[in-house]
């Protein structure tokens, strides 16, 4: 297949084997091992990436389905020298223990901030037309990202801080 996909701004040829998931393509073909494989069944969220700005589980989609689309992984959000606001806040709040779920958490939260800016409602919203930013909202919106170490309180604090800076 001569089709391409753009990952973190760089155009890449799609794999020949159509079975390759977007997750395996990122990790094994491109060496972008920031994106993690947890459950490989869309339950844990460790594989969360952004496709054309929307957060998805990269384990539950084929790379071939994303020809001509733009993928952003944790490597595309910031660098150790120049971290994103969320990456900095996660460090500041100690929002992890083992760190395995962290790239997925940060990709997910990056999209969450945009969704809140767009006033998208969630299951926790009292008012579908104008959701307000509460801890309950952030918890609900992050329910697709599990943390086996249980760093949820600090993850919440990190996201809340950036969301408030944003507002």
């Amino acid at each position: 297949m001569s089709e391409t996909i753009t990952v973190n701004g760089v155009s890449q040829p799609l794999p020949d084997d159509v079975r390759v998931s977007l997750l395996d393509f990122l990790r094994q073909h491109l060496g972008l091992t920031g994106t993690k494989k947890g459950c490989d069944h869309g339950q844990c969220g460790a594989c969360t990436v952004l496709v054309d700005g929307f957060r998805i589980n990269s384990c539950l989609t084929l790379a071939a389905m994303h020809a001509d689309q733009e993928v952003t992984t944790i490597e595309g959000l910031g660098t150790p020298e120049d971290p994103s606001a969320l990456q900095r806040a996660f460090v500041e709040h100690d929002a992890f223990q083992c760190g395995y779920c962290t790239p997925g958490q940060i990709c997910s939260a990056t999209a969450l901030l945009e969704e809140i800016r767009s006033e998208w409602p969630s299951d926790a919203s009292d008012d579908l037309a104008a959701p307000t930013l509460t801890d309950e909202e952030i918890r609900e919106r992050m329910s697709g990202n599990l943390c086996r170490c249980g760093a949820y309180a600090n993850i919440l604090a990190a996201i809340r801080q950036v969301a408030e800076e944003d507002a």
Partner: peptide, 19 residues
């Protein structure tokens, strides 16, 4: 049709609903 918006938002996760 808030019943439809509510039903969808009560299912799965944002990552899955985006797909």
């Amino acid at each position: 049709y808030p019943v439809l918006a509510r039903a969808i938002l009560a299912g799965a996760t944002q990552q899955l609903r985006n797909k």
